[in-house]
Measured scan of single mutants.
Amino acid sequence: EQLARLKREFNENRYLTERRRQQLSSELGLNEAQIKIWFQNERA
């Protein structure tokens, strides 16, 4: 579920704002660094 949600977010926007990253962190139970790194890896 977390992965599917991250992929949906990535398809909508390849870059997250700090606020959006905080929201996802709270909703998915991941820390902000994990989300940031995931997005960086997807863009690579």
Results as ranks from 00 to 15, higher is better:
Glu1Pro: 06
Glu1Gln: 10
Gln2Glu: 05
Gln2Ser: 08
Gln2Arg: 08
Gln2Gly: 04
Gln2Phe: 09
Gln2Lys: 09
Gln2Leu: 14
Gln2Tyr: 07
Gln2Trp: 13
Leu3Asn: 05
Leu3Ser: 04
Leu3Gly: 01
Leu3Ile: 13
Leu3Thr: 07
Leu3Lys: 04
Leu3Met: 08
Ala4Val: 05
Ala4Glu: 12
Ala4Gln: 11
Ala4Tyr: 03
Ala4Leu: 11
Arg5Glu: 04
Arg5Asn: 03
Arg5Val: 09
Arg5Met: 06
Arg5Thr: 05
Arg5Pro: 00
Arg5Ser: 05
Leu6Lys: 02
Leu6Glu: 01
Leu6Gly: 01
Lys7Glu: 05
Lys7Gly: 04
Lys7Trp: 08
Lys7Asn: 03
Lys7Gln: 10
Lys7His: 10
Arg8Thr: 07
Arg8Met: 11
Arg8Val: 07
Arg8Gly: 04
Glu9Trp: 05
Glu9Gln: 03
Glu9Thr: 03
Glu9Pro: 02
Glu9Val: 07
Glu9Met: 06
Phe10His: 02
Phe10Gln: 02
Phe10Pro: 02
Phe10Thr: 02
Phe10Met: 02
Phe10Gly: 01
Phe10Tyr: 08
Asn11Thr: 09
Asn11Tyr: 12
Asn11His: 12
Asn11Ala: 15
Glu12Val: 09
Glu12Leu: 12
Asn13Ala: 02
Asn13Arg: 07
Asn13Phe: 06
Arg14Phe: 03
Arg14Trp: 08
Arg14Gln: 13
Arg14Ile: 07
Arg14Asn: 09
Arg14Gly: 08
Tyr15Ser: 08
Tyr15Asn: 09
Tyr15Val: 11
Tyr15Trp: 13
Tyr15Gln: 07
Tyr15Pro: 04
Tyr15Leu: 08
Tyr15His: 12
Leu16Tyr: 03
Leu16Glu: 05
Leu16Cys: 06
Leu16Arg: 04
Thr17Glu: 03
Thr17Trp: 05
Thr17Leu: 04
Glu18Asp: 14
Glu18Lys: 15
Glu18Ala: 15
Glu18Gln: 14
Arg19Val: 13
Arg19Leu: 13
Arg19Pro: 07
Arg19Asn: 11
Arg19Gly: 11
Arg20Phe: 06
Arg20Gly: 03
Arg20Thr: 06
Arg20Met: 11
Arg20Glu: 06
Arg20Asn: 04
Arg21Trp: 13
Arg21Val: 15
Arg21Phe: 12
Gln22Lys: 15
Gln22Ile: 10
Gln22His: 09
Gln22Pro: 02
Gln22Trp: 08
Gln22Gly: 04
Gln23Met: 12
Gln23Tyr: 11
Gln23His: 08
Leu24Tyr: 02
Leu24Thr: 00
Leu24Pro: 01
Ser25Ile: 08
Ser25Tyr: 06
Ser25Trp: 04
Ser25Gly: 06
Ser25Thr: 04
Ser25Asn: 01
Ser25Met: 10
Ser25Gln: 04
Ser26Val: 15
Ser26Thr: 13
Ser26Gln: 15
Ser26Arg: 15
Ser26Ile: 15
Glu27Tyr: 04
Glu27Trp: 06
Glu27Ile: 10
Glu27Thr: 04
Glu27Asp: 07
Glu27Arg: 03
Glu27Pro: 01
Leu28Lys: 01
Leu28Gly: 00
Leu28Glu: 00
Leu28Asn: 01
Leu28Gln: 01
Gly29Cys: 05
Gly29Asp: 05
Gly29Leu: 04
Leu30Trp: 10
Leu30Val: 06
Leu30Tyr: 02
Leu30Ile: 11
Asn31Trp: 07
Asn31Gly: 12
Asn31Phe: 06
Asn31Tyr: 04
Glu32Asp: 06
Glu32Thr: 07
Glu32Leu: 08
Ala33His: 13
Ala33Phe: 13
Ala33Lys: 10
Ala33Gln: 13
Gln34Arg: 04
Gln34Phe: 15
Gln34Ser: 10
Gln34Ala: 13
Gln34Gly: 01
Ile35Gln: 00
Ile35His: 00
Ile35Val: 07
Ile35Pro: 00
Ile35Glu: 00
Lys36Leu: 14
Lys36Arg: 13
Lys36Ala: 15
Lys36Ile: 15
Ile37Asp: 12
Ile37Gly: 05
Ile37Leu: 11
Ile37Ser: 12
Trp38His: 02
Trp38Phe: 11
Trp38Asn: 00
Phe39Lys: 00
Phe39Ser: 00
Phe39Met: 09
Phe39Asn: 01
Gln40Pro: 01
Gln40Ser: 08
Gln40Glu: 15
Gln40Met: 10
Asn41Met: 13
Asn41Val: 07
Asn41Pro: 01
Asn41Leu: 11
Glu42Trp: 14
Glu42Gln: 12
Glu42Val: 06
Glu42Pro: 01
Arg43Ala: 12
Arg43Phe: 14
Arg43Cys: 10
Arg43Glu: 09
Arg43Ile: 13
Ala44Phe: 09
Ala44Leu: 13
Ala44Gln: 12
Ala44Met: 13
